[in-house]
Design a protein around this nucleic acid. Structure first.
Lengths: 183, 183
DNA sequence: GGAAGCATGTAAAGTGTTACATGATTTT
DNA sequence: AAAATCATGTAACACTTTACATGCTTCC
């Protein structure tokens, strides 16, 4: 069984103390890990079962009253797999799907005024994403850093400053387009 | 039939004069549109047939000697669909899948020296992507701009400066980590 | 003459999302 | 008492990728 990237996502979170399927999903949402690796319950639960069948994980029952819950942990094999994945020399290129950039690439098909409106909308979208990173995600990262985890906040910072820079870029493009139109 | 984003990708390229399935694939590769919207022959050809069945496209035979080729063009319906998509107020948030960022987020599981190696590798990957944008993609964009298309080069510039900025960010992180280790 | 590129497609396998199903506990 | 949240899962559908199949043209 060859592990997928989402298998390592699960192994990494479990090693970090996020031990149930539900908690994994919640952590990915709250920490906005979905920004760079999205997943759903329909992937997590079968994947947990597969990883256990293949010997990367084990679980204990960990009920809360009469409400069932499982606490997963890594086996030695799971530990080895996670560490050797983190040490691999090859890092796949990122995959991006952005309808916004696609529309911008086609903006020549619009009258110039409508193209400016599109650029404004892209900027607004980037401003909202930047605010979300700064106000919601970074504080959680800082808290994790105080708790001894150095790296989650770095990923948050990269996200926040990417969007901040993106806002600037789009603002300048909007200005240029206006000058071309008016001047 | 509700159109998917990749339907609009095809409509946009055909309107821009890229008229055959093969040419669409080649253009997406050469212009590195795959960076923000990847696709394959196995999607393009059935999609062309669907778009024609639904009345967004028509085609003429356009053989090259005895080698078959089709030249597609937009119907009035296809034209309307493309333009109204470009004018939509809602722009979906971008989707990113980046194993590199995922590994960085988990770098606390590695000894600090190995984490530094990971950061170096991420920087190298970003440097290579930046060079590719600057040397291969931007020149094509500039050529399109000279030919009257204002926007493709803007998308290329955003890609190039994103990676340039990313290299800087990773270089600083690497320095910080070294100081924490040595100092 | 062979390799690379042009050109259109299909089949099968793999991956991912949406909707649904069930039931307990905590909060309002 | 109702709504929200915790918790685990399945089924159906949609989408994407990989591999294959076929045949012509251009370049070396």
């Amino acid at each position: 069984m060859a592990l997928k990237t989402s298998s390592y996502l699960i192994l990494g979170l479990i090693r970090g103390g996020v031990t149930s399927g539900y908690a994994i999903k919640r952590f990915i949402e709250q920490q906005r890990m979905e920004v760079f690796w999205a997943t759903t319950f329909a992937q997590i639960y079968p994947e947990l079962a597969d990883l256990e069948d293949s010997g990367y994980l084990r679980h204990e029952d960990d009920p809360h009253g009469a409400r069932q819950r499982r606490a997963y942990s890594l086996s030695a094999k799971g530990e080895r797999a996670l560490l050797s994945w983190l040490r691999r020399s090859r890092i796949p290129t990122m995959e991006l799907r952005d309808e916004g950039l696609l529309r911008l690439a086609f903006a020549d098909h619009l009258p110039r005024e409508d193209a400016i409106v599109l650029v404004q909308r892209l900027r607004t979208r980037a401003e909202e994403a930047e605010r979300e990173f700064r106000e919601e995600i970074l504080p959680i990262g800082e808290a994790l850093r105080s708790a001894g985890l150095r790296f989650p906040v770095e990923v948050g910072r990269m996200g926040a400053s990417y969007y901040a820079w993106s806002v600037e870029h789009l603002r300048r493009l909007e200005e240029d387009l206006r000058e071309e139109l008016d001047g």
